Simulated assay, not measured.
Amino acid sequence: MNINDTLNIFQYLVLGAVSTVYLALFAIVLSGIGGLCLAALLLQKYAILRYCALTYSFTIRGIPLLVLLVGFYFSFPYLGFDFPPRVAAVIVISAYFAAHMAEVFRGAINAIPRGQWDAGRSVGMRNATLLRIIILPLAMRLVAAPFLNVSLSILKSTSLVVAIGVWELASAGRELEQRTGAALEIYLAVAAMYFVLCFALSLASRRIEKAFQYVH
């Protein structure tokens, strides 16, 4: 390959990486929100809510993500939902990793000393208010590291969406490999880009973690 071919390949992979970043960011945000809601249900005093959240969490974590992606994407039309592949991918990945995020938030919340709960209740706070004003801000300092681990898993799992026709970094690599036949070079470049993306996410997470430590 000459220099022009190499530059064209690099540019094409960068476009795929940008698509991967957008897909991962949407999934991280939505799974974080879903995980926080699930964690709140898991901490409810009402048994029915806890059991529903536990059932969802254990069920979803016991099924491979690829099976969920393919199964739900091709089942959506029969259920009356005809989502575009990218939207379906975000929904499934977010729903899947929400169960993992729930354990992250629940573990952090449970790690807060019981005295903080008792102090809030002693001044008449309800659980929802206590959770929002006191417990969650304290728990954020404990969430950063495990949240990063799940976020990295989300980023790497976006490569599975090629199974339902979503174009991203892994898809771009496969297309280039089929065009050029240079499998080793192409997939080494794809792996290097995934490493750069994961490393950048790790750095961003470290900065956020330090910011929370400084604020609280």
Rank of each mutant, 00 (worst) to 15 (best):
N4I: 14
N4A: 14
N4C: 03
T6S: 11
L7C: 05
I9Y: 06
F10C: 12
V14H: 04
L15P: 00
L15K: 09
V18M: 13
S19E: 15
V21Y: 02
L23H: 04
A27Q: 09
C37D: 00
L38Y: 07
A39V: 02
L49A: 15
L49H: 06
R50H: 07
C52E: 01
Y56P: 01
T59Q: 04
L65N: 08
L68P: 02
F72W: 12
Y73N: 05
F74L: 01
F76I: 02
P77T: 09
F83R: 06
F83L: 15
F83M: 14
A88K: 03
V90M: 11
V90N: 06
I91M: 12
S94I: 05
S94A: 15
F97C: 03
F97Y: 15
F97P: 03
A98Q: 05
A98M: 08
A99L: 01
V104D: 05
F105G: 05
I109C: 00
I109N: 00
I112A: 04
W117M: 08
D118R: 08
A119C: 10
A119V: 07
R121S: 09
S122G: 10
M125Y: 13
T129N: 09
L131W: 07
R132Y: 09
I135G: 10
I135R: 05
L136F: 14
L136Y: 11
L136K: 07
L136G: 06
A139N: 06
A145Q: 11
A145R: 10
L148H: 06
N149C: 11
V150S: 06
S153D: 14
S153V: 04
K156L: 13
T158G: 07
S159R: 02
V161N: 01
A163F: 13
A163V: 15
A163K: 04
I164R: 03
W167T: 10
E168R: 11
E168G: 09
L169W: 07
A170T: 15
S171H: 13
G173H: 03
L176H: 04
A183I: 11
I186Q: 00
I186C: 04
Y187Q: 06
L188M: 15
L188V: 14
A189H: 00
A192Y: 01
L197R: 09
A200E: 04
S205K: 04
S205F: 06
E209L: 02
E209M: 08
F212T: 05
Q213L: 14
